[in-house]
Simulated scan of single mutants.
Amino acid sequence: MNKVPMTQGGYASLKEELRWRQQEERPRIIEAIAEARAHGDLSENAEYHAAKEAQSLNEGRIGELEDLIARAEVIDVTKLSGDTVKFGATVVLVDEDTEEEKTYQIVGDQEADVKKGRISISSPIARALIGKGVGDSVEVNAPGGARGYEVVQVRYG
């Protein structure tokens, strides 16, 4: 059973989504199924089929969330330190071509959100950064082609 690394915030958001799906979404879907069933003939009842589909998707996600939570390895980023990049690090990079500065935190796969500056530990850029320190250059083979970055800052917490 492989452990899934994640931050405390990521773990909390998975637990909240599971709570919402079990305690709010599940009863709402059951109500929708009961209401659609009351309309009569189920073979041509679009509301019934849509509600059953929603129930299937919800139950599938609940199973997925329960599995992720059971395998979670919660890492307290505030207790990490060092000057090399590892899981939980917030890294400031400078694009060597455009001189544009970017800041990313390396998080678990379930927490990744590039718009919020959180990249997955399994992404090409995070894999290239692991073990690097301030002043190091990294070459990242991204979908848009190879990019060069210089590590300007590494911080935790």
Rank of each mutant, 00 (worst) to 15 (best):
M1W: 09
P5H: 10
G10D: 00
Y11K: 08
Y11G: 09
A12E: 14
S13N: 10
L14A: 00
E17C: 06
R19E: 11
W20A: 10
R21M: 15
R21I: 04
Q22D: 13
Q23S: 05
P27H: 07
R28I: 15
I30C: 09
E31Y: 14
A34I: 03
E35A: 15
A38W: 00
G40W: 00
N45G: 00
E47N: 08
E47G: 15
H49E: 04
A51R: 03
K52T: 02
E53P: 10
Q55V: 05
Q55F: 11
S56Y: 11
L57P: 11
N58L: 02
N58Q: 04
N58W: 05
R61E: 00
I62W: 04
I62C: 03
E64L: 05
D67F: 10
D67Y: 10
L68K: 13
L68G: 06
A72S: 01
V74C: 01
V77N: 11
T78Y: 06
T78S: 15
T78F: 09
S81N: 12
D83F: 08
D83P: 10
D83H: 14
D83W: 11
F87N: 01
G88A: 08
V92N: 06
E96P: 05
E96W: 05
T98P: 03
E101D: 09
T103H: 12
T103N: 11
Y104D: 06
Y104I: 08
I106C: 11
E111N: 06
G117M: 02
G117P: 10
R118M: 04
I119P: 06
I119H: 02
I119S: 13
S120H: 05
S120V: 02
I125D: 06
I125Y: 02
A126E: 03
R127A: 01
I130D: 00
G131W: 12
K132N: 07
G133T: 13
V134K: 14
V134G: 07
G135N: 02
N141P: 07
P143G: 08
R147Y: 09
G148V: 04
V152A: 07
Q153D: 13
R155K: 12
